[in-house]
């Protein structure tokens, strides 16, 4: 594989990891819960699509798109079951950092469940996600297939749309109300559990679209949840989840750096893994993981120096 093609693939796969990290982080900053459902959807939906259409990439994409409502339904059910609508996550998470483990446990368990499902779907390793077809060429060699480009554009659009829906309109207003005061929302006649289910469905569907983009770029569907999961975790560690849950929607006060940060860091992680693996096979993940930890440590060190006295943790 040429360097140009390697970097192009790494950028698209990293973009998928960054977008999933963005969805997860947005959920964390808003609800105080690590919502793993988008990540699980990003893994399971491409695997099912590849199983249903093993030789045709476009067919797999179509099958994957047809599965989006199902992914949304699954996300809605899990969000409604896992989230406690009577106690806004904002309060729960902001109340004590010691609840961090309680926020992370369901996330890892859902990932383990996704890993089990993937083990059943792909017992013999990753399934092919469509062979290389036509695409953008450079000196007679295809750099990126049209399918991968189409899926990447769709993923960016899906994440942007879900973000927009949670920023404007009645859904956004209901969500902001829930975060500030769930009782007020109940008095307004909106059922909290239904609201959380809708938001969960949006996240899962967006995650599934991103997963399809990642699989298109990698030309294979995931067979285990952990390799992609740890890349997303590395992105989250590098960009930081945010020390506290914000009372107002994060995107209203967000700078461009905060908005694009996850995607950019995701692409950097993808490139880092690909380049190091090319030079020293098998070392890519280790190098990127160590880099993410160093960045996180440095950020925490700077934050601690600037923080006020009375820091509990």
């Amino acid at each position: 594989m040429s360097w140009v093609r390697l970097i192009a693939h790494a950028v698209l796969i990293g973009l998928a990891a960054g977008l999933v990290a963005d969805i997860v982080r947005r959920g964390w900053r808003s609800t105080g819960r690590l919502d793993p459902v988008p990540l699980a959807a990003a893994l399971v939906v491409p695997a099912v699509a590849a199983w249903a259409s093993p030789t045709d990439g476009l067919g797999a994409l179509i099958v994957g798109s047809a599965l989006l409502p199902l992914a949304g339904f699954g996300g809605a059910v899990l969000a409604a079951v896992l989230a406690d609508p009577t106690e806004a996550g904002v309060r729960t998470a902001a109340r004590s950092p010691a609840h961090g483990a309680l926020a992370a446990l369901p996330a890892v368990l859902v990932l383990a469940a996704a890993d089990g499902v993937l083990g059943l779907i792909s017992p013999d390793g990753p399934r092919s996600f469509g062979p290389d077809s036509g695409g953008v060429s450079l000196r007679g060699q295809i750099v990126v297939t049209w399918l991968a480009l189409l899926a990447a554009v769709g993923a960016v659009a899906a994440v942007a749309l879900s973000s927009w829906l949670l920023r404007r309109g009645p859904l956004a207003r209901a969500w902001r109300t829930w975060r500030a005061d769930p009782e007020l929302l109940a008095l307004s006649g909106v059922e909290s559990r239904r609201l959380l289910a809708v938001i969960g469905a949006l996240g899962a569907a967006a995650g599934a679209v991103v997963g399809l983009a990642g699989a298109s770029a990698a030309t294979e569907a995931p067979a285990s949840a952990w390799p992609f999961g740890v890349v997303v975790a590395a992105v989250l560690v590098a960009i930081g989840l945010g020390e506290r849950v914000e009372a107002l929607p994060s995107f209203e006060a967000a700078t461009t750096r905060q908005r694009l940060g996850p995607a950019v860091v995701g692409m950097a992680v993808g490139i880092g893994v690909a380049v190091v693996d090319r030079q020293r096979p098998g070392w890519g993940l280790a190098a990127v993981a160590v880099a993410a930890l160093v960045v996180a440590w440095f950020r925490a060190w700077v934050t601690r120096r600037r923080s006020l006295t009375g820091v509990v943790w």
Binding site: P97, A286, A296
Partner: peptide, 25 residues
């Protein structure tokens, strides 16, 4: 310094990332 300087959820993820790096090495 890595585990206890980060926020608890960040530290939880960091233990995963660090362990994955250790496994790879």
């Amino acid at each position: 310094p890595v585990v206890l300087r980060l926020s608890p959820v960040g530290a939880s993820l960091a233990t995963w990332v660090g362990a994955a790096a250790a496994a790879a090495v």
